[in-house]
């Protein structure tokens, strides 16, 4: 007979095998960087293991929430150390209005919060309230961030205008 520790580990391994791919896709959309995405997922999975017996929601929901928090936290730290002279969270003017960017490149020009909002709303299909809960912000912030993100995508990638025609 296996002990509870062994059972927990087996369940964790099963969860990792089944859902790490999906988590990595979200992490990839959040970061746009393979290494950062893998780090994000590894960190989230380790936190799941750390609090395994205390997670009362699904492990995947916990992992996704951890990823979003960690991503924004990392982005804030990086902003402090690397871009202390300007507000990174403010909409950056397009260097060239005629510049055409891919979806990947356009996403990369968004702030972490804007990217997170888009991923939560249009990739994970969360409602505004759910997205607000995950990010720990108000629904109003989610709405404004979504509006700013979509507006920025229209500027950065006019060919995506049709894609981003929706106002959330």
């Amino acid at each position: 007979m296996r002990g509870s520790g062994e059972r927990d580990r087996a369940a964790f391994d099963e969860f990792v095998a089944a859902r790490s791919g999906a988590l990595l896709r979200t992490a990839w959309l959040l970061t746009g960087d393979h290494h950062l995405a893998e780090d994000l997922v590894q960190h989230a999975l380790m936190q799941v293991a750390r609090h395994w017996e205390r997670i009362d929601t699904s492990p995947e929901a916990y992992a996704r929430r951890t990823m979003h928090h960690q991503h924004i936290s990392l982005w804030r730290r990086r902003r402090i150390t690397e871009t202390t002279w300007e507000g990174y969270d403010a909409a950056q003017p397009a260097a060239d209005p005629d510049l055409r960017l891919s979806v990947t490149e356009a996403l990369a020009r968004l702030t972490a919060k804007q990217r997170a909002v888009l991923v939560l709303r249009f990739f994970e299909d969360l409602t505004e309230a759910q997205a607000a809960a995950v990010l720990g912000v108000t629904v109003g912030t989610v709405k404004s961030s979504t509006r700013q993100a979509l507006g920025r995508l229209r500027v950065l990638a006019p060919e995506l205008a049709e894609l981003v025609g929706v106002e959330s």
Binding site: L24, W28, L29, H34
Partner: peptide, 8 residues
């Protein structure tokens, strides 16, 4: 785009 993610 998410399908460009690396393999876990």
């Amino acid at each position: 785009l998410s399908h460009d993610a690396p393999r876990p």
